[in-house]
């Protein structure tokens, strides 16, 4: 099935069930077989089954590229931030430390920074990325803005983030409750919030 060119990547963490289909499928991707570029973590398993999948957000001004002393991290014309160029990467780890979303991974064996490139080999041929293809909850969704508008009636996409004073705009959008007014997601302050599922938990033992 060919997909329209206007497809974008959307993440809805409220749908995530932590199944790791994305993690397993990512390692099947032809450009980095055997290595998964996705991060999927429990927020706090002792309290909740909440999990959050993180793919590269593909920033308009990628921090990873900005801090790279070897100029090894390039962005494609259509805004996809690539894995470090092998001949240039000096495996210094700057990008790993600096990325506010915690995306790049250091492959120490290959002495190379590797990261999600939105399945460039697939998306450039009109196919969906592996992770969003398989995701059983469709927490990872690859489609058009119109599809999101009609399918995700509870949500709206946001692609502006704040980490302290750093403001970031990204190619990938996060789905937030439709009724919220916020123009950006303040990630640093959200880190103090409780895991979701605790309302359910309270219902369990309140009475």
């Amino acid at each position: 099935m060919a997909v329209p060119e206007r497809n974008e990547f959307f993440i809805d963490p409220s749908r995530c069930i932590g199944c790791q289909a994305c993690v397993q499928a990512c390692s099947e991707c032809d450009t980095h077989k055997g290595h998964s570029m996705i991060h999927l973590e429990f927020v706090n398993r002792a309290w909740s089954t909440q999990t959050v999948p993180v793919v590269c957000m593909h920033c308009d001004s990628p921090t990873c590229a900005e801090v790279c002393p070897a100029d090894a991290i390039k962005k494609s014309g259509d805004g996809v931030v690539q894995t470090a160029r092998k001949p240039r990467c000096i495996a210094c780890n700057n990008c790993v430390l600096a990325c506010p979303f915690g995306v790049p991974k250091m492959n120490t064996g290959a002495e190379l920074m590797m990261k999600c490139d939105m399945c460039y080999d697939r998306t450039s041929e009109g196919k969906k990325p592996m992770c969003a293809s398989v995701c059983p909850s469709q927490a990872l969704f690859f489609g058009t803005r119109e599809e999101v508008e009609s399918l995700r009636l509870r949500s709206r996409p946001v692609n502006h983030f704040k980490f302290g004073n750093q403001e970031i705009s990204t190619k990938v959008s996060m789905l937030v409750p439709r009724e919220t007014q916020a123009e950006y997601l303040d990630v640093t302050s959200a880190m103090n919030e409780k895991t979701s599922g605790q309302v359910v938990f309270l219902n369990m033992f309140e009475e």
Binding site: A21, Q24, A25, E28, K128, P136
Partner: peptide
């Protein structure tokens, strides 16, 4: 390996980790 089968109506390419591996 595998390739998603997007046209199958029930799962439209979706798979769990067992299906992937």
């Amino acid at each position: 390996g595998f390739e998603p089968w997007y046209d199958f109506p029930f799962n439209k390419g979706m798979l769990c980790p067992k299906g992937v591996k």
